[in-house]
Design a binder for these strands. Structure first.
Length: 397
DNA sequence: TCTGGGGTCCTAGGACCC
DNA sequence: TCTGGGGTCCTAGGACCC
């Protein structure tokens, strides 16, 4: 019987650690991963963080804060390989591994203590194994629930373990800033602070109704429970789509792609060319996943960063590039923009259903137009010769 | 040289239906 | 011969997470 069966394992500065592990010359200098033109920081090592650099920060700002930092490009394939190997390490301990993202996972070790020892011993074993086999460090939070384990791993960083026994949960939680709670971002934190609710303890001692009036019904009740360490959610064995099929990944509810232009664009033809490319990317992924969708949403971000979305739901789900693209263009033209300067465009398809559930009439319609067959020919060619080999004529040059 | 890209969930109003 | 009301779908926006 263990009272702290949930482990949250979080890689320390994952991208930066992987990118520098075989490069000793980068071990003693600030390192930033990502951050190209108009980009953001994907990850920064702890030396760079001492200068205030954080992931998600505009790279221009990061470079101002720490001009001597070395910037490296992300190698997503390597990150994926390391991540998969780490998850395998977890699976040797317990089958109940819930992969949250490329660099973190929850483990339920209830069934593992007989063989592997206490949760803390398991945590240390995992850390040692990941370090020996992958050459990177991770931190582990150990608690009775998912939400507390997640907060504990953050306190454990870098390269440590923090255990929060059940009887110490409120002592642990209540001094924390409300912004630490899962689901409290910049806006909600500012709102709560304006109300004088600064710590998790403040939230815990605020009447539920007051909280809900301030931040909405769902977020309000969610926060109130988290503030008391109430979290009934179990760890569920689950992969993420990053690792491909065959691991119990949830079916995706939407698929999309967006692109920030290297310079703002006011030419309709250039915008539509980008939307066609994005639609092609999305529909190809849909066909690989064997899904079709009914709702097309476009996103337009202007030079001043204001952003709007427009969506249209079609009578039948489709995975046909031309159908999705026509809908997207209709939405764009309905905006009636007159040479507005655009920073970004995006295309997303929602309401995804398995392709075989699509109404037969729609599939017959596709056959008549011939576009469905054309898409599949393009997919085959792309598999054989690479994505760059096949593209609409308007994307050439 | 400010601010990526891929997602999920919630809210709120209006349409529509029974 | 004032106003129902509840459920569901669609649309737009917003917040959040990694």
């Amino acid at each position: 019987m263990t009272d702290t069966p949930v482990l949250h394992v979080d890689m320390d500065a994952f991208y930066a650690s992987v990118a520098t592990r075989d490069r000793p010359e980068l071990h003693d200098v600030p390192v930033i991963v990502g951050g190209g033109h108009r980009g953001v920081v994907l990850s920064a090592n702890y030396l760079a963080r001492e200068y205030g650099v954080r992931s998600g920060m505009p790279s221009a700002r990061a470079r101002r804060l720490c001009p001597q930092a070395v910037t490296v490009s992300p190698e997503h394939e390597v990150f994926g390989t390391v991540s998969a190997a780490v998850v395998e390490t977890f699976r040797r301990i317990t089958p109940v591994v819930e992969v949250v993202s490329i660099d973190e996972a929850f483990l339920d070790v209830r069934g593992s203590v007989r063989r592997w020892g206490s949760p803390v011993e398991i945590a240390e074993r995992i850390r040692a194994t990941v370090h020996d086999e992958q050459g990177i460090t991770c931190s582990v939070g150990v608690a009775a629930s998912i939400s507390v384990a997640k907060l504990a791993s953050r306190r454990a960083k870098p390269d440590g373990v923090v255990v929060v026994p059940p009887e110490e949960v409120t002592t642990f939680l209540h001094p924390l800033d409300v912004g630490e709670l899962y689901g409290v971002g910049e806006k909600t934190r500012a709102m709560l602070h304006r109300l004088g609710l600064v710590t998790v303890g403040d939230v815990a001692h605020t009447p539920l109704r007051t909280l809900q009036r301030a931040v909405g019904h769902a977020v309000g009740s969610h926060l109130h429970e988290l503030a008391w360490g109430l979290d009934r959610r179990e760890v569920v064995a689950k992969q993420t789509p990053v690792f491909g099929i065959g691991g119990g990944a949830d079916p995706e509810k939407s698929m999309g792609a967006q692109q920030t232009f290297s310079r703002d664009v006011d030419d309709r033809e250039v915008v539509l060319r980008e939307m066609l490319a994005l639609t092609g990317t999305v529909s190809r992924r849909m066909r690989v996943a064997e899904v079709a969708g009914r709702t097309v949403t476009i996103t337009v971000r202007f030079a001043d960063f204001t952003t709007l979305t427009r969506s249209r739901t079609m009578p039948e789900a489709t995975d046909v590039t031309q159908d999705l693209y026509r809908t997207a263009v209709g939405l764009f033209d309905a905006l009636g923009l007159q040479r507005a300067r655009l920073r970004l465009v995006g295309v997303r398809v929602e309401g995804l259903v398995p392709r075989e559930s699509v109404h037969r009439q729609a599939l017959l319609g596709e056959r008549e137009h011939g576009w469905s067959d054309a898409d599949r020919a393009v997919d085959r060619a792309a598999r054989r010769f690479g994505n760059a080999a096949v593209r609409p004529a308007s994307l050439l040059g």
